[in-house]
């Protein structure tokens, strides 16, 4: 048993645009259907707004924008991952909009390859590693870092495409 938990972890995979990402289930509390999101005016544009989660106010992040993708209309598949994140600075609960949730799967630790630091679209500190699932590369995210960073976007900044903070 112990051997197994050491070498294999459960990951939730979800889709954003054409890409598939995975995140450790330890951080994901639940998955919600899309409900009415109240916009907070004058907030950074990657913040979609707030929702009522059983009497508490939960901020919701538009993950597509955070990941540097174009804004897209919500579909029936769009849902909110409710996450509990801890970083060095803080402990927060938030929701993240994703295009679709796919599955929970066990991933062997040994099959995870380090993320390439060059040539990747995303900044390497946000990616824990890559794994090949059904001939497709899935990026395993460091959720706590991705969603607690002050940066607007997690894509690599180059001289030409400097991201301005809204």
């Amino acid at each position: 048993m112990e051997q197994q938990t050491l070498t294999s972890h459960s990951y939730l995979t979800f889709r954003l645009g054409d890409e598939t990402f995975a995140a450790s289930v330890n951080h994901v509390l639940e998955i919600l259907e899309l409900s009415k999101i109240t916009k907070v005016p004058r907030a950074p544009h990657f913040m979609r707004g707030v929702i009522n989660l059983r009497g508490n106010v939960l901020p919701v992040i538009d993950t597509r924008i955070k990941f540097g993708l174009d804004k897209a209309d919500d579909t029936v598949n769009t849902c909110i991952l409710v996450m509990n994140l801890e970083s060095e600075k803080q402990k927060i609960m938030l929701g993240a909009l994703v295009d679709a949730v796919q599955e929970v799967r066990e991933i062997e630790q040994s099959s995870i390859q380090p993320a390439p630091s060059i040539g990747s679209k995303y900044r390497s500190e946000f990616i824990e590693g890559m794994v090949k699932v059904n001939d497709q590369f899935v990026m395993i995210l460091n959720l706590a870092l991705v969603f607690t960073t002050d940066e607007v976007s997690i894509i690599q900044e180059t001289a030409e495409e400097k991201i301005s903070i809204a």
């Binding site: 009415k36 109240t38 907070v40 004058r42 907030a43 950074p44 913040m47 707004g49 707030v50 929702i51 009522n52 009497g55 508490n56 106010v57 939960l58 901020p59 992040i61 803080q90 927060i92 609960m93 938030l94």
Partner: peptide
């Protein structure tokens, strides 16, 4: 009054949010 949370700490113009009778969130 419910806090908006750290993600909105720069939105000083809102001191928080509240849940209305119909379940909607009001700032």
């Amino acid at each position: 009054l419910k806090p908006l949370g750290d993600m909105y700490q720069r939105q000083e113009e809102f001191s928080g949010a509240t849940i209305l009778g119909n379940g909607a969130v009001a700032l």
